[in-house]
Design a protein around this nucleic acid. Structure first.
Ligand SMILES: [Mn+2]
Ligand SMILES: [Mn+2]
Ligand SMILES: [Mn+2]
Ligand SMILES: [Mn+2]
Lengths: 248, 248
DNA sequence: AAATAAAGTTAGATGAGGTTAACATCCCCC
DNA sequence: GGGGGATGTTAACCTCATCTAACTTTATTT
């Protein structure tokens, strides 16, 4: 069992991703993807060829060997699972979750990775309605407010729960469609987000004043199924999150 | 803001730990702790002195500066929180959780770290009785069996849920006291563990045949409060885990 | 088909982080 | 107070991973 450095693992992973996107892999793609200069790619590639993980035709394409492909897939799978865990479950923002996942993927044991995958499976197998707690956790990270049935052990608030809210310390209500549990109805207050997304949503009939009912929320909050003016829509979490609501 | 490599961060962390344990830090302690030869310590130390994070008296002790201490503490705090998360929540075994924590501590963003700390706080603030799901997750990791109210999304079992059980595919019942939720009663089948622990437990009256009632389980399953022969005992999770039971 | 642009390679340098072998210093014990 | 073992330092070397500058090969224009 060869043991690879973080850097070389990233070369393999990048080769896999590029080959999926573009079909073939060239030195400059790899250099761009890894934010590194071409000679670095050539040097590392040589080592990988020596290890039997990569083939390289002089002045031509790079290619993963069977063994290289297998390793790359393992890394990439870890990456995707970690990302899911960080972004969908812990609620870390996309960019950061992406970066962290691509770091952690090299440093996490199979045991821990296994537990995380199991945890994701567990959560996805158990409907969100049944275990209300994910929503409660989201609420907590956003506002620092615990559900009423929770008793703070030391009465101390975490230094991390510092959502620059200038408002008083009353519990803040859910604010966007992404915060609503299944079965709730709400009125659209405002649609935020980028212009492209915004107009797509407005086109669907999601305009201020519209009443939206949340029908089902997938295990990790993605996607959300809603009813708007009698139509059934399935919204991605990112979409639901830009729809500001007044709760009723 | 200086950015340090994994390796140098570990030097600082090790210095903190050694100084807490032994009072002073010497080259050979550091070498032993980091599994590295003395000249490596000297070389890295020189860099750290240059950065103003460490003081070093020739042929004498090493010492963290105020700035070095602060960084070391941050790393060590991350380490401990990650360990808690991995071991107590995800259920990764101690050794592995320790190793993984000491890797992840260098590669995790403040955002993600914050979410993890919040999650631990959240879980600890919400009594286990209320949200039954942690116990259900433990059950799942141990046996691969989901609670009845859960619906497997694809009917596929994870490759990770492979508890080398030679038995049929019937759901395996909980086996040790650590697996029991609050309110359950069970009879001791066998007491395992190391001799010292074993005899301590036997002394407490925990012998095969004894009936034990689980009164309360702390948020992460540590400690467990039980009643044995009318006595109230508080057991550490590690202790409860060596008590094999027949469920009744 | 020649000229030019783009992509890839080589050479040589740098710095981190590790090693072994040899030497220097400290300190305890007789 | 002088040895001798433990500890620390230096020197010389290694690999990995990156860089820049200069060169070669391939691809695209004109
Ligand atoms: Mn990566
Ligand atoms: Mn990655
Ligand atoms: Mn570490
Ligand atoms: Mn650590």
């Amino acid at each position: 069992m060869i043991t690879l450095s973080q850097s070389t693992e990233d070369y393999l992973e990048a080769m896999l991703i590029i080959s999926l996107e573009r079909g073939v892999v060239r030195v400059k793609d790899l250099a761009a993807h890894l934010q590194v200069k071409a000679p670095s790619v050539v040097a590392t590639t040589k080592r990988l060829v020596r290890e039997g993980l990569v083939r390289h035709e002089r002045y031509g394409y790079l290619e993963l060997t069977a063994q290289g492909l297998q390793i790359a897939q393992e890394i990439y799978t870890r990456h995707k699972n970690l990302f899911r865990f960080l972004h969908l479950f812990l609620g870390v923002d996309e960019k950061t979750a992406e970066r962290d996942a691509c770091q952690m993927e090299h440093h996490i044991s199979p045991e821990t990775m296994g537990r995380i995958v199991q945890f994701l499976e567990f959560i996805e197998a158990c409907p969100a309605e049944e275990s209300h707690w994910i929503a409660a956790f989201r609420q907590f990270t956003a506002t620092g407010t615990l559900p009423t049935y929770c008793t703070s052990p030391h009465g101390e608030a975490s230094a991390y729960t510092r959502t620059s809210h200038t408002q008083g310390d009353t519990a803040m209500p859910p604010k966007t469609l992404a915060d609503l549990p299944a079965g709730q109805q709400a009125e659209v207050a405002r649609v935020g987000g980028e212009m492209a997304l915004k107009s797509r949503l407005l086109e669907m009939g999601i305009v201020p004043g519209t009443k939206i009912t949340v029908e089902r929320v997938a295990p990790l909050g993605d996607p959300v199924e809603v009813t708007v003016r009698g139509y059934r829509l399935s919204l991605r979490r990112e979409e639901a999150a830009v729809i500001v609501i007044k709760e009723r």
